[in-house]
Design a protein around this nucleic acid. Structure first.
Lengths: 254, 254
DNA sequence: TCCTGTAATATGTCGGAGTAATTGATAGAG
DNA sequence: CTCTATCAATTACTCCGACATATTACAGGA
């Protein structure tokens, strides 16, 4: 372990006893508490099996009411992170009970230093799902889908991935592909993974300039989908995912 | 409104007319409320955009405290089903914001008559993910994985899928494959989908006896994984999923 | 030793009071 | 007449203190 990140202990020590949860504007208190506990659990600060000291104690320690604390716990329970039972207390569940594909859980996982192995797992899953999505899109896209993809591609060309507008166009392009699959489940899944993986991509962006022009690869996917060539679309998307993995892996020092 | 607090007994006794939530033993009240509202939303009883009449009104209608109601709402919010804002009320979010892969959401979706299109989507996703899982399992399985799969297969032979023991063995077999992939994300995803799809399988079981012996197909998958033949494992698993889809589709009158 | 009943403890549920934030209306300025 | 800024009402958010319930642990008896 390199360095510990500022934990609740640090805040307690620094704040003379009361570890108030910081909450941004518009953010609800229980949401902030859930975020705090969620990131703590995902970062391994609480291990599976650990019990969170009693409701009253913890609420008092965080300097919030029991209601707010309980609502936060319900959120964590809903995501499979913890389980509460009378007399037994609230304990962290084993990792295989966690809803790792929940967008918020993914965000918590990537809030700190993301676990290398988990990032690998996500890329692996992406490498399975995205090409399949491209295959379906090639079979089912209509004129409207093609138009949206075409516009997004043009915007990517104009702004490049270095700008926020360019990245937005990139997201639009991939979302258009997902829409074209006509599969809600696939859509939700891929959107979650994509968002999570993009956290690491921003990482990469900081580390060093993008070495390669991503447009040609995107064009290959686009052309295959327009042509209705399912196999080619899957193949081209596979290349795209592999390249992204390659970049991220090298940026993370893997 | 008197001080006299109607105790739980009084509430049960005076069960005349109000739509009280029924809660089984060991089940928390807010969990029951979340289940009630979740199924109502998933079944289309509340459409996206609809607002749930205010906290106080709804809590009173269900004859529960606002605390219990609010905790239930936090659960639904955590799953992306609703969103609450001051002055605006609590409104159902558009479908693409729902965490459709959340195990509980899936259970709610299958609580009533499941949407045919959604079932189709799930099978499609399964047809993408499961063969890929088998492929990875063939590449990464160790002696222990093989042993567990072998035992499960033997148990399936003994008890057949008509018995609960047999179905448990079937689940064990598929779980063993997932474990062998060494990919947590894939594991969680596939387990969720598998569980949901099995709801419909039970449907099928009721409709008519299983027409085909599932053992040979499972054996083909097993053999390929043991042999480390990735392509054959993916292929064999693909067949398995296709057959399951076929059965379910015919049972649902598709 | 094993079983049973009892007590302790932590979560679960409740209702009410007060706070904060968003929206819609209203009034004023251009 | 239109647009903008201010205000008020409505609603969710937060807090509090009390009581209910369930599960565990312990003590006592067979």
């Amino acid at each position: 372990m390199g360095q510990e990140r500022p934990s609740a202990d640090a805040q307690v020590a620094e704040n003379g006893g009361s570890a108030k949860v910081a909450r941004g504007p518009g953010r609800r208190l229980h949401g902030a508490i859930a975020h705090k506990l969620g990131t703590a659990i995902l970062s391994g600060q609480y291990a599976p099996g650990d019990v969170l000291s009693g409701e009253v104690a913890f609420a008092e320690e965080l300097d919030v009411s029991r209601s707010a604390y309980r609502e936060a716990i319900q959120v964590l329970t809903a995501k499979g992170l913890v389980e509460s039972r009378p007399k037994a207390g609230t304990r962290v569940l084993p990792r295989n009970r966690w809803n790792l594909l929940d967008p918020e859980v993914l965000a918590w996982a990537f809030a700190g230093e993301p676990d290398i192995q988990f990032v690998r797992d996500l890329f692996e899953l992406r490498a399975i799902v995205e090409p399949a999505a491209a295959r379906l899109a090639a079979q089912r896209r209509d004129r409207n889908d093609v138009r949206i993809m075409k516009d997004a591609l043009a915007a990517m060309r104009r702004h490049t991935l270095a700008t926020e507008l360019g990245r937005a166009a990139d997201r639009d392009f991939h979302n258009a592909i997902l829409d074209a699959t006509r599969n809600d489940a696939l859509q939700v899944l891929s959107a979650s993974i994509g968002a999570a993986v993009n956290w690491t991509t921003q990482y990469k962006q900081r580390a060093r300039a993008l070495p390669r022009n991503p447009i040609p690869d995107h064009v290959r996917v686009f052309d295959a989908i327009v042509a209705g060539d399912a196999a080619a679309a899957a193949e081209a998307m596979g290349v795209l995912v592999d390249l992204a993995l390659e970049d991220t892996a090298s940026a993370m020092g893997g």
